[in-house]
């Protein structure tokens, strides 16, 4: 078995440890004997490279870098990504990418920046005086997340068996994101701000695509999400249920618990 991972704009949208997500998915697949190829998809990359991928990842960016990637993403990459997401290809959109796949982003100065609307959400920046939402964050994955996957009972990882649903991370965003009716949140915030600091929810799920404000390395300390993405990728690619052998995640969960104990 093998997986092709498309890493969108690794030279532009990789702000603060985003590579951790790629490393986590790659290692956790390889430890189970699945070959992984990571393809860097950036401005000059032909779209067929993206089309032939089994899992999509796109990370955070600074304003300048996001602007550079913006047009290429909207005109060339996002139409293909939309088809892929619709067909069940799993994706992870973190931080700036989470905002970028929405319907629009309203900066505190200037006009709305249109997005492809792969996710039914919009983001607003409430001004340079508005507080940035920064800090360690803890959330509880909603039961609807497991419903969103085609075969929740096939999730055989250690995390699933022990019914772990807590995710931890760090958030740092000025924009506030609001979900439309076609989109379900990923998790309920226990500590921190999440999508907008108002409604108590964090992230979004559409088919097998996940968006989150947990920036940078979301997956290493939340292996259940990493495994969920790997499993959805294999199932969509091979068209059958493929149980993943459990891994020893003792260290992963000790790191997670250490964060929980600190806040």
């Amino acid at each position: 078995m093998n997986l092709n991972i498309a890493w969108l704009y690794p030279d532009l949208m990789s702000t603060y440890g985003d590579r951790g997500n790629i490393i986590a998915v790659t290692k956790r697949a390889e430890w189970r004997g699945i070959d992984v190829i990571v393809k860097d998809i950036s401005l000059g990359t032909a779209v067929r490279e993206l089309k032939s991928s089994d899992l999509i990842f796109m990370g955070g960016a600074q304003d300048r870098q996001q602007k550079i990637a913006g047009r290429d993403f909207l005109e060339r990459k996002s139409p293909i990504m939309r088809d892929m997401v619709e067909r069940g290809v799993p994706a992870l959109f973190v931080c700036a990418a989470y905002q970028a796949v929405g319907r629009y982003y309203k900066p505190y100065q200037g006009d709305r920046i249109p997005g492809p609307g792969i996710f039914d959400l919009y983001t607003e920046h409430s001004g340079d005086q508005a507080k940035r939402l920064i800090g360690n964050v803890v959330a509880e994955i909603l039961p609807s997340f497991w419903g969103a996957s085609a075969t929740p009972e096939s999730d055989s990882g250690h995390a699933r068996m022990t019914k772990r649903t807590t995710i931890v991370g760090f958030e740092n965003h000025g924009g506030r994101t609001y979900l439309g009716p076609a989109l379900k949140p990923l998790a309920k915030v226990i500590k921190g701000f999440g999508n907008n600091g108002e409604d108590g929810f964090e992230g979004a799920v559409y088919k097998h695509a996940v968006g989150s404000y947990f920036h940078g390395p979301l997956l290493p300390k939340n292996p259940l999400l990493a495994d969920w993405l790997i499993q959805r990728a294999l199932e969509t690619k091979y068209g059958k249920r493929i149980p993943l052998p459990a891994l020893d995640d003792t260290l992963e969960y000790r790191a997670q618990t250490a964060v929980l104990n600190r806040i």
Partner: peptide, 15 residues
């Protein structure tokens, strides 16, 4: 460490 002078966010170790 993740104290104020270090920065509270340790994500960067993945870079």
């Amino acid at each position: 460490n993740d104290r104020i002078p270090d920065g509270r966010d340790v994500s960067w170790i993945w870079d």
